[in-house]
């Protein structure tokens, strides 16, 4: 089963990133085999709707769960409809976060834990 983790860099020992839509990379880990690969987040530079675009990326990548610190309402809605589970509470590195997930220390989210970003401005 493939799990994606919000990361600052593209490897298993990267520090995690607090943001979902704007994290530069995901590290996609196969929790059964321990194999992993880096996935650049093409949504992170978008002018608006980064969370939506990032969620689409993970749907296309076929992940079953994503480990986050904070996630907003639009991204949460997409992931929920796609049946992708969202766990909150990551810290340290990607590998530490995956270990916490394996041991059941992360909390399954059913609601977004971060507010909608300001929409005033470029529109």
């Amino acid at each position: 089963m493939k799990v994606a983790v919000c990361a600052r860099e593209s490897h298993i020992n990267s520090p995690v990133d607090q943001r979902f839509g704007r994290c530069p990379y995901f590290v996609v880990v196969d929790v059964d085999s321990g194999d992993w690969e880096g996935l650049p987040n093409t949504g992170c530079h978008s002018g608006g709707g980064a969370g939506i675009q990032t969620a689409q990326l993970l749907v296309n990548a076929g992940v079953k769960a994503v480990l986050v610190d904070r996630i907003g309402p639009n991204a949460m809605e997409v992931l929920a409809r796609a049946g992708i589970q969202v766990y909150e509470g990551i810290s340290g590195t990607v590998s530490q976060s995956v270990e916490a997930y394996r041991q059941g220390h992360l909390k399954l989210l059913s609601q977004p834990n971060s507010p909608r970003h300001s929409r005033r401005g470029r529109s």
């Binding site: 709707g49 980064a50 675009q53 689409q56 749907v59 796609a82």
Partner: peptide, 22 residues
């Protein structure tokens, strides 16, 4: 979803989601 510059559309395996305000 690919061509939407404003990320208002998401295509899931069996559903298309629209975010009208985007």
């Amino acid at each position: 979803a690919e061509i939407c510059a404003f990320h208002a559309l998401v295509v899931l395996p069996q559903e298309v989601l629209l975010f009208p305000t985007m």
